[in-house]
């Protein structure tokens, strides 16, 4: 027989046998797939960010299909559209998703915040904060070394020219990974689609100490609490905090604040862009 023919037949036969074996194996050892979960997963954004509290999009999808969770509104990157689509697929009533956005609660940029020493080590907030709490005299100041920048799966965070981290609200999908990453716990998810006041400072030291560390810090003077008509602003531990369910966004607190630490402009995406431009 022609040697070329033998070669062709042999290689063809090996290929056929291997192919057939794979087909047989994949038929007999196939994992019974959860079709409903696959359909739900197709609706989810696929970012695998874990904001829903499950191991990823597939984890959330299988939990929904098995009925382990009833909540269809857990996907923050997907927002209302995904919640509606998933609930329609499952034949459940949709639930409202409050859109939130990550905000770095620090206005202590270079020139405003006092530095107590010079840090010259590995560029990591986590490591820097272990060495006497980092460069800034304020124990709650943004170190600006960008741990949150590296952690953000959407590339929404950057460190501004003035050395503090800022979130681009248009890119932020509110997954919350940065919230856990920041060693100073400066990043919070705050409501994005309505006017509300935000306190852009977390310093809980007494007013005089805060003043020495940073000109923009909340000194706990209580003016905002007194000015607030709905009782949304409360000062505890010398730092104001806003209850968003009560805040109407009237802006009275902003008018009285001596350091600019509380601001209604804080949360709407357009205003955040302004903050990033004006304030570094």
């Amino acid at each position: 027989m022609n040697p070329i023919a033998i070669a062709v037949i042999f290689v063809g036969a090996v290929g056929l046998v291997c192919g057939a074996a794979i087909v047989v194996l994949s038929k007999f050892f196939a994992v019974p797939a959860d079709e409903k979960a696959e359909e739900i997963e197709a609706l989810l954004p696929g970012a695998n960010c874990g904001a829903c509290g499950f191991s990823g999009c597939s984890g959330y999808a299988s939990a929904l299909s098995k009925g382990e969770t009833e909540k269809v509104n857990l996907c923050k990157p997907g927002g209302q559209d995904v919640a509606d689509a998933v609930s329609a697929l499952l034949g459940k009533e949709s639930a409202a998703v409050e859109t939130v956005v990550a905000v770095v609660r620090c206005r202590g940029w270079n020139g405003v915040a006092v530095k107590k020493h010079k840090y010259d080590g590995i560029s990591s907030c986590r490591l820097a904060s272990q060495l006497y709490g980092g460069e800034k005299a304020c124990p709650n100041g943004c170190l600006g070394l960008g741990d949150c920048v590296d952690a953000c799966p959407f590339g929404a965070i950057y460190v501004s020219d003035k050395g503090v981290a800022r979130v681009d609200p248009d890119k932020c999908r509110a997954c919350g990974i940065c919230v856990d990453t920041c060693p100073k716990k400066l990043i919070d998810l705050l409501p994005a689609e309505r006017a509300a006041a935000a306190v852009l400072c977390r310093n809980t030291q007494k007013g005089a100490q805060t003043r020495k560390a940073c000109a923009n810090g909340c000194i706990g003077c209580m003016k905002c609490q007194k000015a607030c008509e709905t009782g949304a602003v409360k000062v505890t531990d010398f730092c104001a905090e806003v209850d968003f369910s009560l805040c109407t966004g009237c802006g009275k607190c902003e008018e009285v604040c001596p350091t600019g630490a509380i601001a209604v402009r804080g949360l709407l995406p357009a205003n955040q862009v302004r903050i990033m431009k004006d304030e570094g």
Partner: peptide, 16 residues
């Protein structure tokens, strides 16, 4: 050819 097919089979069995 044979190695590629074997890896596929190992993958199917591991997955199961």
């Amino acid at each position: 050819l044979v190695i590629a097919a074997l890896v596929q089979m190992v993958e199917i069995i591991l997955k199961r």
